[in-house]
């Protein structure tokens, strides 16, 4: 162990047996209690990569994964791994806020109910602490039984974060979580991400380089399914070692 919470070793992935590789030979470390940003132009494979980390790509029929993804040193693609247990450890927040068509309370309690938690006061505690951690408690404490869709987009996204952390994950994967939000809501989420790394390890995909620079400790730059370079965010943005990284972050393409 070298302090990496999550680690990929020569990870390659293709959507079907005959398809070309969508990810090629990716080796990257995500340090515990840090935020790592994954940047790159559209279609570079950064979202695909993120979805390999909690095996959400399993639903794509015939998907082919090579190499290893290690969570605390053990391979999440090993045959004995229980995918549902893995996904509780590695939570995910999606690009568009996707609350269930239930009440605010039911949304947050959903993951715990899946685990069979029935105790109402225990559920109430978890709902409160999760909403507090997501910075939403004060805004919704008096309207927990209202439908989640009555919240604004930014609030919905923070609700989705609360829902994800209600099952006490260790890692949070965020797939462009602010791309559907206005600048103010985006700022709230970014602030939240910086808070969350105290308790969680965060991997965030973003198309917004300023965002990566603002919130991440480390950054990885993807291009056409390959990892061009990865390292501390300050280094990537000030002294990139690969000319393609420099071209991208200075806005010459992408």
């Amino acid at each position: 162990m070298d302090g990496a919470k999550l680690k990929t070793e020569s990870l390659s992935m293709a959507y079907s047996a005959n398809a070309p590789y969508a990810l090629k030979d990716i080796s990257v470390d995500v340090a515990e209690n840090s935020v790592m940003a994954f940047i790159g132009p559209s279609g570079c494979g950064k979202s695909t990569f993120l979805r390999c980390l909690n095996r959400m790509n399993d639903f794509v029929g015939g998907v082919r994964v090579e190499g290893r993804v290690l969570l605390d040193g053990s391979d999440i693609y090993a045959p004995e791994v229980d995918v549902t247990a893995l996904r509780r450890k590695v939570g995910m927040v999606f690009q568009r806020p996707n609350p269930f068509p239930f009440s605010i309370r039911e949304n947050v309690a959903y993951g715990q109910k899946l685990l069979g938690e029935r105790n109402k006061s225990r559920l109430d505690e978890i709902v409160e602490s999760s909403l507090s951690s997501a910075g939403l408690w004060e805004e919704v404490r008096d309207r927990l039984n209202e439908p989640a869709v009555s919240l604004s987009g930014g609030q919905q996204q923070r609700l989705c974060i609360a829902r994800a952390i209600a099952v006490s994950p260790e890692v949070l994967l965020m797939d462009e979580p602010t791309s559907a939000l206005d600048p103010l809501a985006t700022a709230r989420i970014e602030e939240l991400v910086r808070e969350l790394k105290k308790d969680y390890t965060v991997a965030i995909v973003t198309h917004n380089m300023q965002q990566a620079a603002r919130i991440s400790d480390a950054t990885a730059f993807f291009l056409m399914g390959e990892l061009v370079e990865a390292g501390p965010t300050t280094g990537i943005f000030t002294t990139p070692s690969d000319p393609r990284t420099e071209d991208y972050i200075t806005g010459r393409f992408g």
Binding site: R88, N98, Y110, G111, A164
Partner: peptide
């Protein structure tokens, strides 16, 4: 039913 709902549920460890 939007695929988003299914994704969110699976990502929380639902069968």
């Amino acid at each position: 039913v939007p695929q988003d709902f299914r994704d969110a549920s699976y990502a929380l460890g639902a069968t």
